[in-house]
Amino acid sequence: MIIEINSVKKIYRNRCVLNIPSLTLAQPVIYGVVGENGAGKSTFLKLIAGLEPVSQGEISYNGKPLSAETIKQITYVSQSPYLLKRSVYDNIIYPLRLRQVPENEAHTRVEKMMAMLQIESLRDRGAHRLSAGETQKVALARALVFEPEVLLLDEPTANIDSDTIALIERVLKDRKGMMTMHISHNRDQVKRLCDEVLHLSKGELLTTEY
């Protein structure tokens, strides 16, 4: 998996909020995306997820420009994820149904994912009745269940308890062969979890050090 960013700019109302001349991300590792508030971190992830169009330049995935087809292998989880108004199980199985995975196989994968994130007891609960930590775990299970090649996480562990943070970090560490980009303000977490760091400031990529 290769994400190539060439002369990408994102401009909102005549203000350039992100400017990355050139960047290639080619390793299936965990990248920490750090920087102060307003540095352009969320915008950076949303552009890669195809959720927002670039104003200039191009982002390509495995040599092809981002399109409805190529972004099927890229997924994004926000700080306050939106869960569908249905049960936890139905939320997690949703992306597999979109991909028309046979029901038996989908069921097995969902059960496995729920066990991994320790949310089996929430199986039939309405997704709108969950705590912040539970919501985040369900959103992560839903994002991982279809085995994406690229996982984009926008501060997934903000406002949740330390046990849940440790569990999420463990799950992320255990996923091999997947590129993860993880926005965090927690310096210790970045050192603990991430293999490489992208440091953004005022919309510019400063270093890959932290």
């Binding site: 997820a49 195809g50 959720l51 409805a68 972004i71 099927k72 890229i74 997924t75 994004y76 989880v77 994820p81 939106y82 569908l84 108004k85 949703y94 992306p95 979109l98 991909r99 839903r142 994002a143 279809f146």
Partner: peptide
């Protein structure tokens, strides 16, 4: 709520038709 639903559907691999069905359901 539409923008959130649209975003979720897109990031989970849905196409435009899936977005419409999901919106109606939500």
């Amino acid at each position: 709520n539409g923008e959130e639903v649209k975003r979720v559907c897109k990031t989970l691999g849905g196409n435009s038709r899936d977005v419409i069905w999901l919106l109606v359901a939500e």
